[in-house]
Design a protein around this nucleic acid. Structure first.
Lengths: 242, 242
DNA sequence: TCCTTATCTTTACATCGTAAAGATGAAATA
DNA sequence: TATTTCATCTTTACGATGTAAAGATAAGGA
């Protein structure tokens, strides 16, 4: 077990196995993304591991994202991540924090680009779904993993910002001031409804469970168009009969 | 590895290790649920494994549901499930099918019990969330696992029935006849909106992400009350201003 | 009665997460 | 400058898991 492991795990740069340092010049290490911003040879491992994790996630999906695979991708030993993240939960949590920041940035820039009130109202949910479609693995880390530690400041802060942005957008759409403290039932329901709808739509879409509906719609109807119809209906359509 | 495994895995009835069958009477086996309905000693293993899986899931959660744990719970060797389910995916898929059948039955009986039109409209989504709250592990198997094989007839059929029930309920609420073949964009949007909302609400609720909202609501507001408010608003409330 | 075959057990192996001990070099201190 | 300290990384090890393959065992038909 240990033997075969060592044989496979060392698919890296062959870093001076014992002490035969024939090249006293800066030992290069880092097979990928080792341009010049890594000042010394050890300082940027944490960041490198997070980038490697993102790469592994996009390449091999959620089930391929293991501690050892990330270490392999970064060119370090399989136990190296332990010191920086402590745990698999730690790595996933920090990666989820990265995802939340990307996610928030994408929604913010999309909202800023909108001009008309209608576009402004649709920009955020459309950017939400678009991010999830573009980064399904990352969205899975953020919302599908049960193994996240929200007591970590970075994750807590990023997720909180995401929620605040949502609540703010809903409040603006309802032309109300959201007092960060208390909420009326109607306000809370509006926020929860918006979040539930877009989150549920995204999950069902990523899981392929909307294919059944999309296939029955008029030829060439895209998921984005369906989302628009979902969002527009409660505003312009007539309410369902009781 | 093999030694310690054998030592731990055999926490069962000590079934005639080699050939020293001192008791030629029916070897009892099955430490749990071995009343009299297991006719012989091998016939009902498939069913027994599914029940064991459900037990393990409720006791140890989603992460504790492993092939070996299920076999252990059923009192058989760790490779026994392979012949019946082929794979971990197979076991999870069959278990998800069981869950979908329970789920559909719960919603159907809840709908039948409703009398007023309003109660009839709220019964299905409330039963949806109630089932998920009562069986979070099972709901996770059904909707959170990426490892399901929908080509299996049992799972495909049960999930399809769930979708058909939803579409039918939405159609009845809109007082329309759903032609099983094609859908207008408005119809598809109504179905997708209903499903997205209740599914998203359930996921956020199970993940504890609504605690933030629930804590800001008037004292003692329960998740069920919030769900009611979400569902009622688009009917009775005024639409959000553009 | 014997043999075929489905069912279950043993054994084995690669992989994973995690812990603990050993090596290594950057930085602080003298 | 020489030495020590300590954070960082590697080795080694262990239990657990999924899965494959071979061996045992009993049921039912020949």
């Amino acid at each position: 077990m240990g033997k075969s492991e060592t044989r496979i795990e060392t698919a890296r740069v062959a870093r001076t196995p014992k002490k035969a340092s024939a090249t006293p010049s800066r030992p290069v290490r880092r097979n990928a993304a080792a341009k010049a911003e890594t000042p010394y040879h050890h300082g940027a491992l944490r960041e490198a591991l997070l980038q490697a994790a993102e790469r592994v996630l996009e390449r091999d999906g959620l089930s391929g994202l293991t501690l050892r695979a990330v270490a392999r991708e970064a060119g370090v030993s399989h136990a190296a991540p332990t010191h920086h993240f402590g745990d698999l939960t730690g790595l996933l949590s920090e990666l989820a924090a990265v995802g939340f920041r990307q996610f928030n940035a994408a929604m913010a820039s999309s909202c800023d680009a909108a001009t008309t009130p209608l576009a402004r109202a649709l920009a955020r949910p459309k950017a939400y779904v678009a991010y999830a479609q573009a980064h399904p693995g990352m969205y899975g880390i953020m919302f599908r993993t049960e193994r996240l530690d929200y007591s970590r400041p970075s994750l807590n802060e990023a997720a909180e910002a995401s929620f605040a942005g949502l609540a703010n957008a809903v409040g603006m759409m309802r032309q109300e001031q959201i007092s960060g403290d208390a909420l009326t039932l109607t306000q809370g329901a509006a926020i929860a409804r918006a979040w539930s709808m877009v989150h549920g739509f995204t999950m069902l879409l990523l899981d392929g469970r909307l294919e059944d509906i999309l296939g029955r719609l008029p030829e060439g109807t895209t998921a984005e168009r369906l989302l628009e119809a979902i969002l527009m209906a409660p505003v312009t359509g007539k309410p369902p009969a009781p």
